[in-house]
Nucleic acid binder design. Sequence first.
DNA 1: AAGCTTCTCAACCGCCAGGAG
DNA 2: GCTCCTGGCGGTTGAGAAGCT
Length: 278
Amino acid sequence: MVRTPCCDKTGLRKGTWTPEEDRKLMAYVTRYGCWNWRQLPKFAGLARCGKSCRLRWMNYLRPNIKRGSYSKEEEETIIRLHDSLGNRWSAIAAQLPGRTDNEVKNHWHTTLKKRFKHKPSAAAKDGKDNSSQDPKLRRGTSREKEETKLNDVDHLLISSPNPPLILESSLSSQQPASSDQNSSITTDNTVVTSKLDSGSDDNSTTTNTNTDIHTDTLLEAYEAESSNFWTEPFLSDINYMWSDVSSVVPYEADQFPLLDGEILYPFDFYDQLQGLDL
DNA sequence: AAGCTTCTCAACCGCCAGGAG
DNA sequence: GCTCCTGGCGGTTGAGAAGCT
């Protein structure tokens, strides 16, 4: 499923992330934010390129990542948005709280796409899905990007002017996060929450705006072709709790001997937990 | 049980946009 | 206006899991 680890010419690691690397990245970003992805691995004590760190954080370690099966509503949203937007996975993912563009893209290619092999999307028919042909048309407008930015949790992480250096050997000497750092994290959580809320609103809005007759036809076909689809329980609703320990901290707590609870559960974790009837 | 094929998805790659100097 | 740097995006890859023969 994952690539075997290897080293490139510059000595930077590639391939599968180890639990140790995840721990370092998570500890650093949680505590200090992603002030500069390029420089971050150096300060975090990681032999990875910045891009790799960013990708790992965005697609796997972020606290609000939703994992598990897609619900009927989520797949419906993907289908509708793909029909209207084409392969703009980040825009589609923005309407699916907790889902990453990579995940949405994978799910489309592995599952949803096959169900509509013979039914080209409206976007494709209208020429909207020409993104892969003309790279200049692949990107969203600056306004769309701005809106996406507002939803992007990471933009609210702190930007430390003097980033703390965390060397492998110095992790244990880290002091607890300052109140300022905590506030940024709390802000992060607030945004996550509002994003989740607004996400559903956006969903309905987008659905109303973008749904056309063709999409309905597409969805009907989709329903007809996926026999067990509508009858499946909302697995993701069961599996996903964005404040769940498993999503916030993918490893056992005792694997974080250097981290205190403040970092393990940096947000108003327990408050969220109580509200979920777990 | 073994070998083969198909599927899944984490991760890489290259390109582009936008900001800073 | 130009160059450089960085973040972000979408396409693609390929190892491992799952299914099939």
